[in-house]
Amino acid sequence: MTLSICVHEEYVDADGVDQHRFGVAVTTRLPGVGALCPFASEHGAVATQAVTNPELGRKGLSYLEDGVAVDDALRSLLNADESRAERQLHGVDADGTFAFTGDNCLGWAGHREGTRHHEEAGHHGETGRRERDNYTVAGNLLTDESVVDATAESYERSSRDRLLVRRLIDALGAGHTAGGDKRDDLEIQSAAVVVTSTEDREMEPYYNDLRVDASKTPLRDLRETFALAREGYEAAIEKYAE
Rank of each mutant, 00 (worst) to 15 (best):
E153R: 13
A178Q: 02
T101F: 15
D66R: 11
D66M: 08
T198L: 01
S76W: 08
D185K: 05
C37T: 15
V51H: 09
T127Y: 15
V24K: 11
H118W: 10
G34T: 12
D170T: 10
A236C: 09
A227H: 01
E204D: 14
P31L: 00
R112W: 15
L89Y: 03
V12C: 07
K216A: 14
K216P: 10
S41V: 11
K59C: 08
V165M: 11
G91V: 02
R157A: 11
L89W: 08
D170R: 15
V193S: 10
H43P: 04
V147D: 05
D81K: 02
G91Y: 06
Q49P: 05
A50V: 03
V147M: 00
L141F: 06
R129T: 12
G139L: 01
A14Y: 10
A241L: 03
A227F: 02
A171R: 03
D170H: 13
L163C: 10
E204S: 11
G34M: 05
D181Y: 02
R130Q: 03
A121F: 10
R220C: 10
V12E: 12
E156I: 01
S190A: 03
A152V: 01
C105S: 09
L3N: 11
A171N: 04
L142T: 02
R162P: 05
Y11C: 04
E55Y: 03
V24Y: 00
L30A: 12
A80N: 13
L210M: 12
V68R: 11
A40H: 13
V194G: 02
S154R: 11
P31I: 01
A235T: 01
D170K: 15
P205C: 00
G91E: 09
R75F: 05
T196G: 00
V17Q: 08
E113I: 13
L74N: 03
T136V: 06
M1F: 12
T136W: 00
D72Q: 14
E9L: 05
L89D: 03
K216D: 13
F100Y: 08
R166S: 15
G122M: 05
V148A: 01
